[in-house]
């Protein structure tokens, strides 16, 4: 059975419907990617699953139980962790303090220390500067810290919102390598991306949304191979290069 099941999810902002009858399913241990242009509703979908945005219709089921009415904190306690768009590091806190904030729900202090030590081992750049304010980090290092902050919350489902945005090509490769590594360690991943080529290469399942609706869903290899689809929904896809693909529809920035 799927770990996460979104059925007919709709979200209204003001009078506009930004998410319209979206359904998708994420199996335990899978990487599922959601692709689409700016303003397609990808961020809204993640926010709705995290509990930061209310559904106007539809439902989200996680681990066999509906999430209706549960706060962000309660969903976090069940293992649903969001890495927000743009990293959103707490810049005046130190790197270590950022990680401690990420682990704020946990009471097993010794295990938290161990998890933080493991993150330092994985990212020596963070370890060196653990007591420095986080604004001194580069964009790529901030992304690593944002993921580290999510890891110390002990996620079962990690949702990443455009993690490659604004990163150098080298870091994009490191990042996708890390996502695959975490997934092999048992983590379920829901990945929202504009870098369609990279995302399709690591995903087990892909969904493309446009103007709040699902337009295509299926096997990422099939999506990648279909030139008509690539042109219509993913721009003039160049999967090797880094950087976001030129979106066809520009409707303001990502909501």
């Amino acid at each position: 059975m799927a770990l996460l099941e979104v059925e007919g999810a709709s979200v209204d902002y003001g009078r506009g419907r930004v998410l319209d009858d979206v359904s998708l399913s994420v199996g335990e241990g899978e990487i599922v990617t959601v692709l689409g242009a700016n303003g397609a509703g990808k961020t809204t979908l993640l926010r709705a699953i995290a509990g930061a945005t209310r559904l106007a219709a539809g439902r989200v089921t996680y681990d066999g139980a509906p999430l209706d009415g549960l706060s962000i904190g309660e969903r976090l306690a069940r293992g649903i962790v969001l890495v927000p768009e743009g990293r959103r590091i707490l810049i005046s806190l130190t790197i270590e303090e950022n990680l401690l904030v990420g682990a704020h729900q946990r009471r097993d202090t010794a295990a938290v220390r161990k998890d933080i030590a493991a993150i330092y081992e994985r990212f020596p750049n963070l370890a060196q500067r653990r007591h420095m304010a986080a604004w001194c980090l580069s964009g790529g290092e901030q992304q690593m810290l944002a993921i580290g902050r999510a890891i110390v919350a002990r996620p079962r489902l990690m949702m990443l919102d455009e993690p490659s945005l604004g990163l150098s090509p080298l870091f994009v490769n490191t990042l996708f390598g890390l996502i695959v590594e975490l997934n092999r360690g048992g983590l379920t991943v829901l990945l929202v991306e504009q870098n369609a080529g990279k995302a399709l290469a690591i995903a087990h399942h892909a969904t493309v949304i446009e103007l709040g609706r699902v337009v295509v869903a299926g096997d990422p290899r099939a999506l990648q191979a279909d030139p008509r689809l690539r042109e219509a929904y993913l721009g003039q896809g160049d999967d090797a290069a880094a950087g976001p693909i030129e979106p066809i529809l520009q409707r303001g920035t990502g909501v």
Binding site: A52, L76, R88, V101
Partner: peptide, 11 residues
């Protein structure tokens, strides 16, 4: 620092 992200982090 950032009230919005603090909320997203479940504080």
């Amino acid at each position: 620092n950032d009230a919005t992200v603090s909320e997203l982090l479940g504080l």
